[in-house]
Amino acid sequence: MSAKRNLLDAAFLQTLEAIDLYVHQPENGQGSGLRRSRAYGSSTEFADYRDYAPGDDLRRIDWNLAGRFDRYYIRRFHDEKQGRHCIYIDQSASMGMDEAKATAALQLAAALGYLAVSNMDAVSFRLLRGDRCAELCGWVAGRERFYAAVRQMEALDFGGDTDLGAALRDDRHPGYDDGMSFILSDFLTDSDWKGAADALLARRRECALVQVLSPEEAEPSLSGPCRIIDAERGGAALSMDVDRSARRAYREAVRWFQEEIRRFCVSRGMALLTMRSDEPVGDALLKRGFAEGLIR
């Protein structure tokens, strides 16, 4: 169990009050909320007319049109639904080896959750560990339950090897066309997480990838002959003389890897937010979140 973290403070929450998640129109939201749905409902926002059919509510007949065309038309309004967002948190050892990285990832998850509940949406924090997906505390709607969830997140610990693709597929209730799915991870895995993300898209979920890297991962400080051990899997992964050329190759690999994720996101119309754990979460969210169309 790691030391308890302080994920949200008042100043940061005040900043978040001014922004909202950019969610497209969900069709299958549950209950009423503030998200305009593609389905017709009972909001005040006019959507369309249709011919009157027996059984329709007479209060919805547009009498002005009836007087002009001598036909009855029923006014239809947009429905406003509650979005249901899933935030998947990679709970592998690679995310928790650097405490700053774990904290940054959880802060970002909490911030996204707060944006959801503050706009009348429901959010569910789901933990990806091994090849399993587990809910942190079920659906969270309303700030009281959100703060309770955040307290649980503050005590969250990381460890083990996560098969990101398998764990995402293990989610039994990923939802269907009712909100967004955020995947928070470093994506430093050979697992087929892209297939899992495609599966979420197939369920008409809006997906966003959030990649968190520590400074050590972006610019390693290793030098000399090293036997490199993977924190997730244990055992020697490879032996290498880390010299100037090796560092240059590493930087090339990081750049290529990030480009690869971006290409995938662009091809799927997914948002991508990349941040380093040594930068403030607010800065990353506000500056790049707007640019990526994640928030508005």
Partner: peptide, 9 residues
């Protein structure tokens, strides 16, 4: 040397 993930290496 232990690293968070050897994937990039």
């Amino acid at each position: 040397r232990t690293v968070p993930s050897a994937y990039l290496w």
